[in-house]
Each structure stands twice: as C-alpha cells, then as structure tokens.
Amino acid sequence: MSTDTAEKYHKHTPAPIDCNNVVISLRNIRKSFGSLEVLKGVDLDVCKGENVVVLGRSGSGKSVLIKIIAALLRPDEGTVRVLGKEIDQLDARELQELRSKIGFSFQGSALYDGMTVRANLEFPLVRNQRKLTRQEVDKAIRQVLDDVGLSRTIDQMPAELSGGQKKRIGIARTLILHPEIMLYDEPTAGLDPVTSVEINDLINDVQQRYNTSAVIITHDLTCAKATGERLVILSEGKFLRQGSFEEVFHNDDPIIKDFYNYNFISDS
C-alpha cells in the first residue's frame, strides 16, 4: 500500500522520546456498558515525549480509552498507571494533583459557555495555583493565547469563535497548567482540511514547546500521520496493530486496508 498521498501532510519533526520513562501504562483494560463490551483487554505504553495516535472507527472505544486514562471512567478490569501512579489507588486529593499534570482536549472543545476566553483560561489556573497575583495570571493567559495564536480573542465569548478557534482555546486552557501529558479527543473532527492541518501543527508545536507526551484519538489519517510517532489501530475493543504510520499501513489486513482507502480516497 502506497503512502505517497499522505506524505505531503507529514511535517512532523519527532521530539526526543525517552522509552525508559513510561508515562502512561495500561494493562488488560476491559470496559463494558451494559451488555456491550467496548474494550476487551487493551495494553498500551506511552513513552515520555512520545505522541501515540489511537486510530479507529466511530464506536470502536477510542473515547472510552482516553477517558479511562484521565480517570473520567473506571475500567471494569485492568490497571492504569499515569506518571508512575496507579489511578485506582489514589484518593481524591492525589487524583486532583495528578490531573493537573494531564491536559484533555475535548472533541467539542467543552469551553465554558457563560465565560469569556479570559475566564475560561483563568478558571483552572486560579484554582490550581491560588497564590498567583493578578499580573501573573494575566501574563500566563496572554502567554498561552500567544502560543495558540489567538491573542485577539481574549474578551470574546465561546459562541463568537469558529470551530478551529474553539479547539485552540480548548488546548490553551489545558496548556495553562503546563501538563506533562496531553490527551486529544478527535482534535480535527468537524474542521475543514486547512484548519485541520493548523491543529495538527499546533499539536506538534505543543509537544516541542511544552515537552509533552500525548495520546491522540482520531479517525483522521492525515492527523495521525502528521502528529503521531506511533500509531495504534483499535478495532472492536482490541488493538489490531501498532507501529509507525508506514508499518501499520503496509499490510493486507482488510480492516486496515479499508480504513486507509476511505481516508485517502485514491492515490491518483
């Protein structure tokens, strides 16, 4: 299978990856909703500085997986270790402390509707770092807005922003706490191709500038190729294959072949 069509989107310069330091470790994760088994024994390690893309069709359990990592959902079975801590063993305070090191970019951005961009960014910051002065808070807000290229939106309401701008502000809101791990849930879903490429660049920029490790959930191959050092295909609750983009897609598995063909309609 040729990957030439995708090559032009691939602008990513890999960051230094430290595989002696595993920041996320999932072992035998199982999760069901009623009689529907969504995850059927998933194992995953994410190294420090690495961007791992989890690819899969809608309903394959990608979002459930990422929510388990962020402790928004509890697995029925298996262990989740994040930054060396087993999530199940943490009390509320420890979990809160751990979460301040995890940034989560939601599919729908999840900006607080009733607050301006400034208030959205201030919200997590002042609650996690209570001793900051007004000037320090303002400086931090301006810094992250500069980093995502949206300084002018500071006093706008979320309803006044475009889809791409909302994604950027959503990412900025997580960056303001300087997370060690970023979790992106469908970062390019619902965006036009140009904005999608901008978001992919931003994800890479965040990795370089903030030295983050990331799990990127997507069904967009362009995003996967542009942002991931390692790809994992999730199908029917299990990991089908993992490796670099080329390693994953150079095979004849019909599921993977279909996935590739539907994303990159044709090479001609």
Partner: peptide, 10 residues
Amino acid sequence: EQIEAMEVSS
C-alpha cells in the same frame, strides 16, 4: 462535556 472538562482540569 464542560463538567468533565472541569474535572480533568483538576
């Protein structure tokens, strides 16, 4: 997901 966003932002 705004409530979940609050949870994950500690």
